[in-house]
């Protein structure tokens, strides 16, 4: 118990997020999976900053939260624009750019 458990929880949530990103077809749920992966990394950083008596991990997690908020806002605006022009939300059918 200790750093091994932090690694286990973080790895589990990260893998679940990666799985959700690949198998789901709704772009909103895909974004939620990305949030899961970012949260898993945040937890790992904060756990190790506590083990190592250092504040650098917490600063890193704070910056990651900022980046995640910006990313979610831009992503949701893009999803909204796609819905306005195509009136459907299925990532398998958004293939105009596919070569």
């Amino acid at each position: 118990m200790g750093s091994e458990f932090v690694l286990f929880v973080s790895a589990a949530i990260f893998s679940i997020g990666a799985l959700g990103f690949v198998i789901r077809k709704n772009p909103l749920v895909m974004f939620m999976s990305v949030e899961l992966m970012l949260n898993a990394v945040n937890f790992l950083l904060i756990g190790y900053s506590s083990f190592l008596n250092s504040l650098d991990g917490q600063i890193f997690a704070l910056i990651i939260m900022t980046v995640a908020a910006a990313e979610v806002v831009v992503g949701l605006a893009i999803i909204l624009t796609i819905f306005r022009t195509r009136h459907e939300l299925d990532v398998d059918r958004i293939n105009t750019l596919k070569g």
Binding site: M1, F5, F8, V9, A12, I13, I16, G17, L19, G20, I23, R24, V29, M32, S33, L36
Partner: peptide, 16 residues
């Protein structure tokens, strides 16, 4: 820590 960590994993399973 163990209980809350397991709850977090279950909740993330619920998401996907």
């Amino acid at each position: 820590v163990f209980i809350i960590g397991m709850t977090a994993i279950l909740a993330s399973l619920g998401v996907i």
